[in-house]
Amino acid sequence: MTLFEGRNLDCRRGGRDVFAGLSFELPAGGALLLTGANGSGKSSLLRMLAGLLRPAGGAILWDGQPVGEDPGAHAARLHYLGHLDAVKPVLSVRENLRFWASLREGAEGQGAEGDGATAEDAGGGEAVPDDSVLGESGRLEAALDHFALGDLADVAGRLLSAGQRRRLALARLLAQPAALWLLDEPSVGLDHASVGRLAAAIAGHRARGGSVIVATHTALDLPDALPLSLDALAPPPLPEMIW
């Protein structure tokens, strides 16, 4: 059953057509692996799916509904990890993580609708009300531990190495549940052990019925992920721009 779907997506950046006619279907628990040369539009596609970038053509559907109709609900159901880690240098690791987690928790009213749309999303806090208060901080510590940041929890963000910052950004994925993960080169700067932890986190997410779309150049263990190559979708060199 298709949960998340893109139909005939066109991408246009800076007066240039990046890709055209891109379609995909992703079931709950599914994974999509984006491949393509530099500049083929992997990052643009992920930004588009997150709702940061408006497609020049085509439709993005969640559960059959266009996501543009309710951007707030769409934002609530996804985690987007871009090239930047969004780590504040003067906040400690735990403070950094707690801010982003509490923002989602604090706005659960708006997010509830989106979470409710996916029955499979067992991680949704509102299903088990007594878990929600204790669960938040427990989940936060568990997220830190999963990416081996427990010992660094009180260290200021400015003291972290690039790989540690990346792990902190990844910990956001686990600190609050979301049905859809959009990961842009998630393993950049990670050591071998951390890449394994990332793969485990993704596997756990999928086991809970979550979906994931990953763009990566490095090897990442994604069992039965659907491949999607953007290379074939580049528009012809001379499009109908010439009127």
Binding site: G51, L52, G72, A75, L78, Y80, L84, A86, W100
Partner: peptide
């Protein structure tokens, strides 16, 4: 804007 917090803020459920 530069450290990526802004796009995370935009993608948070908070309007």
């Amino acid at each position: 804007f530069e450290d990526g917090s802004l796009e995370q803020l935009l993608l948070s459920p908070l309007p």
